[in-house]
Amino acid sequence: MLKKLAVVVSIVGIVQAGFFLTRAQAQMGSAGQDEVAPQPIADPFEPFNQAMLSFNLKLDEYILHPVASGYAAILPLGARQGVGRFFHNINIAPRLGNKLLQMKLVGAGKEVGRFVINTTLGGLGFFDVADSWFGLEAGHADFGQTLAQYGISPGPYLVLPFFGPSTVRDAVGLSVDGAMQPMNYLLPTYPETIAARGGWVMGNAVNFRSLNLELFENVDRFSVDLYGAVQDGYLQQRERVVQDALAEQ
C-alpha cells in the first residue's frame, strides 16, 4: 500500500510540474473561440505519443476490432448493451469515491441509489431500471476530474498504450480509479486472478467496441492530421467533463 502511495505522490509531483509548464497555455485556451486563436499547445511527449497512437491503432485493427466483430456476430445487440450496463453498474466504486471526494453528496447518493436498484431490480445491472423507472440517470466521476476540481492542471498530453489519449493528470486519475476497484483487494494475487482482471478489462473494451463497430472505420479519411484531431478531441471532451463537475452541486 505504502509503495502504491509513494508512486501516486511522485506522479502527482510530475503533474504539478506539468501544471507550471503549461499554465500559460491553459490560460490562453479560453480564447479558443475568438478571432485570435492560441498557438499550438506544448506537447513535450509527442514522439512517444505518436508511437503509442500507432500502437493503439494497430491493436484495434488486428485484435480489438476482429474480436469485437466475432463477438457481435454471436451476441445480439440488446444483450451487448446489457453487458455494457452491467460493467457500468459494477464499476460503481471509483464513481462513488470521486463524487465524495468532490463533495457532490447528491451525486454520491444517486450512485448508491442506482447501484442498489439496478443490482436488485435491474438483474445485476443488465437493465438500467434506475433510469427508466425512477429517473436516476447514469452519472460520471473520475479522479482526473477530482484533481481538476482541486486546481490541478491537465499537464502535457500523454497517449497511453491500451487506454488511449490522456494527460499526465488524467493518467494519474486512471491509476487511482483502478486502485479504487475493490476487486483489486478482495481477490488474492495469483496468476489466475491477475488473468481474470485482465480478462475483465478486455471484456469491457471488446463489448464497447462491438457496440461501435462500423461508425468510424477508415477514420483517416476524416482528418488531415489524425494525431492532432484525436488530441484535440480528447482535450475538448475532458474540458467539458471538468466544467460539468465544477457546475454540479
Binding site: 491503432l57 487506454f163 473494451a205 467496441r209 468510424f216 484525436v230 478531441g233 480528447y234
Partner: peptide, 15 residues
Amino acid sequence: MQLPRLLFLLTLCGL
C-alpha cells in the same frame, strides 16, 4: 478504451 469513442465522435462531428 477512449480511442474508439473519440474516433467515432470525430467522424460524427465531421458528418
